[in-house]
Design a protein around this nucleic acid. Structure first.
Length: 841
RNA sequence: GCGGAUGUGGCGGAAUGGUAGACGCUACAGACUUAAAAUCUGUUGUCCGUAAGGGCGUGCGGGUUCGAGUCCCGCCAUCCGCACCA
């Protein structure tokens, strides 16, 4: 065998990257007459270095983008930076750098890292959300939503650090304490800006029905998040007096099982009572301890305070229920008050047992109909109503309808549709975000910044030496004249949630004029995004906010797009083994060495413990830097690894052995290419294999089943290597290059030029995807399975399309089958054409 | 607490209800080499058996079916999200 020089990615990678750039190979043409494909991966936060998870994400998108180009599409595949956020402020505090400089440096580094991977990106459309050229347009869109009545202000709770005197993000609350001060956090109310996402709750819910190319699990999660429920809103009246407590319930069928009414600590009635009752005041304070997350609130021990008030049961005015203030009732959901039916709700049951309240069964658990409910597990399954007067025997649904009808007829309540979804609070008490373009005036109230004064830019001269929002304490930035009356006024110092930035960047990618957020006609040419790819951690918030924002823009007539992402794919994480020393300190993989089953620390020789395979994280030291592995193996081997083995929606474990195998395959493809010799003759079997693989790889890439596409390419490589020289073999080698070119583009270009002298040259990136010859896909023989009572006993190779009677005869003639039947009587024979025969005895 | 997922050899995984383990990795054996690397060939779920062959096998327990990794019911374990991380 002649020796072939190795493919050298250290030279080839950069050469091809430069050629693609010089030739504008991947610049998308707005005016193209080709069919369009918009391929988008979730843009990264510029943390400083790209993470291996980014490499996986962008490699998947890149393969699809390149494949789409080869199959005749005008492809838009852009990249940008989700550049506002807390890490820049943390860096500013810790390293005394300005967030802008830190972020821009990070972007430059990460862009260089991405370029080394050879992604087919239209860099001319690059954007960063922290630049006024982006966020200025965002401010304009915000004000359009404001003018349309989709933005309002209300009080809302934040995590408050009483020592640092600052607002904390949930992430900054660790075990209920501020991450820097260590002080127990409190919930404090601030006046904040909200977007009316709840106006779109029903649209966002029904819209999910049209997203048939989204994963079912994501649609289900969004459905649950929106949480539409039908229930009863009714009043429990104060005995004899005026008014009462409005309660919302999804279980009006259980009203005869009520044993208490509970209201939120923030409920107006609780507030009013607390004003004159120090012990209740103390309890309300107690309820404010702890963070604002759902997990914190719902896992906290259930606590209540008996107010001494009672209310009348709506179905029986002589029946009085005690009123508690309870920490598990949320002011944000429903009316901020519930009636407790302990037998059929776990939280209510926990509460009732704790405060020794009656527990009455009103839904039958099979034959058990006792009114006294025993045990500490609530019964929430379907059943029939019991112990409920006229409702006895009804199903839950019948009883719900009956109570609602009765409430409406008698005027003490009505049926109501309720959503779990809350309006989107977008105010952040931080510097590094989009300034909210509002001016507060003592006489005019909140006044939008006039269009001609946009963008409202962030001041540069800020300091981060003390906690809190530097915009608040800036000496002059917030001091402005009211645009309406001209009097001294104050600029809003809160900035927008970074989820706002990421709610429309895909529109700006499609069209980025200087003077407006986007050109409608151009944006509509590209949108919706044909394939969106990103982490499943964004399944709810980012994707729901982006859907809402797009609908809101559509609602006010700025764009005619309802759903921004036609097809969604959520990828798994990249994981890696973790290692610890005897004391439990984390070790990086290159600090340890394996000898048999024993791990030791290379430097000290001390034993190490190989731990769990976990998501790569700096704190556990199990990270791999993409630059290092590209240095070592070249971009193509890294890309190939990202696509191999693990299904893309599942986690991928990084391994040294795995990347070495990929490196070997890249070299193997290179050697194969050198074997095109202009031989004659056809190889029917290889032709068939080649065309089966062309069809299979194309289908797999379209389904984003890259691991399967990779396996088929391996299969073809094996078949080519085993085949004798022929024209078919030469053709198969060209084909395998084309098929693998979206995955290993540098090698493919290099090899393509080697073959190019014969073929007229040109980039493989611009080559056409090979066509499938359907006549070659069909096999003329098939192997069928012969089973006896469902167990495999023999296999036979027969002509394709053999009639069932003949299959049956062949099966019965088999010695192995006869042996397995052991003389038994045949009860039945199942024949599946071209597949199997099952003899039942 | 609520919501969502995952579970198949030594490992990653493949398998329209129809031959479980494709393909890759690892390991082992052999070829080539002064040697190593690279490359090539073969073996590699498990148990019994010299072999032919057979038993058992897709987290656990049931069920449906001629036939279940796949469908249904009930468990167990692990992971992810929960509205101010991005």
């Amino acid at each position: 065998m002649s020796s072939v020089e190795r493919f050298n990615p250290h030279v080839a990678d950069a050469r091809w990257q430069n050629i693609w750039e010089e030739r504008n190979s991947f610049v998308a043409d707005d005016n193209s007459s080709k069919p369009r494909a918009y391929v988008l991966e979730m843009f990264p936060y510029p943390s400083g270095r790209i993470h291996i998870g980014h490499v996986r994400n962008y490699t998947m998108g890149d393969v699809l983008a390149r494949y789409k180009r080869m199959t005749g599409y005008e492809v838009l595949h852009p990249m940008g930076w989700d550049a506002f956020g807390m890490p820049a402020e943390n860096a500013a505090m810790e390293k005394n750098v300005h967030p802008r400089g830190w972020t821009r440096d990070n972007i430059a580094n990460m862009k260089a890292q991405l370029k080394r991977l050879g992604f087919a990106i239209d860099w001319k459309r690059e954007l960063a959300t922290c630049e006024p050229e982006y966020y200025g347009h965002e401010q304009a869109l915000f004000l359009k939503l404001y003018a349309a009545g989709l933005v309002y202000r209300k009080e809302s709770a934040v995590n408050w650090d009483p020592v640092d005197m600052t607002v904390l993000a949930n992430e900054q609350v660790i075990d209920g304490k501020g991450w820097r001060s260590g002080a127990p956090v409190e919930r404090r109310k601030l006046s904040q800006w909200f977007l009316k996402i709840t106006d779109f709750a029903d649209e966002l819910l029904t819209g999910l029905g049209s997203l048939d190319q989204w994963p079912d699990k994501v649609r289900l999660m969004q459905e649950n998040w929106i949480g539409k429920s039908q229930g009863l809103k009714c009043t429990f009246r104060f005995p004899g007096g005026d008014g009462g407590i409005d309660v919302y319930t999804t279980r009006p069928d259980t009203m005869f099982g009520a044993s208490f009414v509970a209201i939120a600590a923030d409920h107006p009635i609780a507030q009013k009572l607390a004003a004159n009752a120090p012990d209740l005041q103390a309890f309300v304070e107690e309820c404010r301890k702890g963070g604002t997350t759902a997990a914190d609130i719902e896992t906290a021990e259930k606590l209540g305070f008996n107010t001494g008030l009672t209310v009348e049961h709506p179905l029986d005015a002589s029946w009085h229920l005690p009123v508690y203030v309870a920490n598990f009732v949320l002011m944000d959901y429903g009316t901020g008050a519930v009636f407790g039916c302990p037998a059929h709700d776990q939280r209510d049951l926990d509460f009732a047992r704790k405060y020794d309240l009656p527990v009455t069964r009103v839904v039958a658990d099979g034959d058990v109909t006792d009114s006294v409910f025993a045990g500490n597990i609530a019964f929430t399954a379907p059943g029939n109503i019991v112990n409920s007067h006229w409702m006895n025997g009804m199903t839950i649904d019948q009883a719900k309808a009956d109570v609602i009808a009765r409430a409406q007829a008698e005027g003490w309540g009505k049926g109501q549709t309720q959503y779990r979804l809350r309006d989107w609070g977008v105010s952040r008490q931080r510097y590094w975000g989009t300034p909210i373009p509002i001016i507060h005036c003592q006489t005019c109230g909140a006044v939008p910044v006039p269009d001609d004064q946009l963008p409202v830019t962030l001041p540069e001269d800020v300091s981060f030496d003390i906690p809190g929002n530097p915009l608040d304490r800036h000496p002059s930035w917030s001091k402005v004249d009211c645009p309406s009356c001209g009097n001294a006024a104050r600029r809003e110092t809160d900035t927008l949630d970074t989820f706002v930035d990421s709610s429309w960047y895909f529109i700006r990618f499609a069209s980025q004029p200087k003077d407006k957020p986007f050109d409608r006609a151009v944006a509509e040419k590209w949108l919706p995004v044909d394939q969106y790819i990103g982490g499943v951690e964004h399944a709810i918030l980012h994707l729901l906010y982006a859907r809402f924002w797009t609908r809101a823009l559509s609602h006010i007539g700025l764009i005619d797009v309802k759903e921004p992402f036609a097809s969604l794919f959520t990828q798994g994480m990249v994981t890696h083994q973790t290692y610890q020393d005897a004391k439990g300190s984390w070790l990086s993989p290159d600090q340890v060495r394996r000898e048999g089953d024993v791990w030791t620390i290379i430097d000290s020789g001390a034993p190490a413990v190989a731990g769990r395979i976990e998501k790569m994280s700096k704190s556990k030291k199990n990270v791999v830097d993409p630059d290092d592995i590209v240095d070592q193996y070249g971009a193509d081997a890294v890309r190939w690894f990202m696509l191999s083995d693990s299904p893309p929606e599942r986690d991928l474990e990084w391994s040294e052995a795995g990347i070495e195998g990929c490196w070997r395959f890249v070299q193997r493809l290179w050697r194969l290419t050198s074997q095109v010799r202009g031989a004659d003759g056809a190889d029917k079997a290889l032709d068939r294999k080649t065309h089966q693989v062309i069809a299979g790889v194309g289908a797999d890439i379209e389904a984003l089943a890259f691991n399967k596409a990779v396996a088929k390419i391996y299969d073809l490589a094996n078949a080519i290597e085993k085949a004798a020289p022929s024209a078919s073999r030469d053709a198969a080698i060209r084909t395998i290059l084309l098929l693998s070119s979206p995955m290993v583009p540098h090698l493919a270009e290099e090899a393509w030029t080697q073959l190019g002298a014969e073929m007229g040259g040109g980039l493989i990136a611009n080559a056409a995807w090979p066509a499938v010859d359907p006549t070659l896909l069909e096999e003329d023989e098939v192997t069928i399975a012969i089973q006896v009572r469902g167990k495999l006993r023999d296999t036979l190779t027969v002509a394709k399309g053999l009639p069932p009677a003949e299959m049956e005869a062949l099966a019965l003639a088999s010695e192995k089958v006869q042996h397995a039947m052991d003389g038994g009587d045949i009860k039945k024979i199942v024949v599946v054409p071209d597949r199997l025969v099952n003899i039942v005895i």
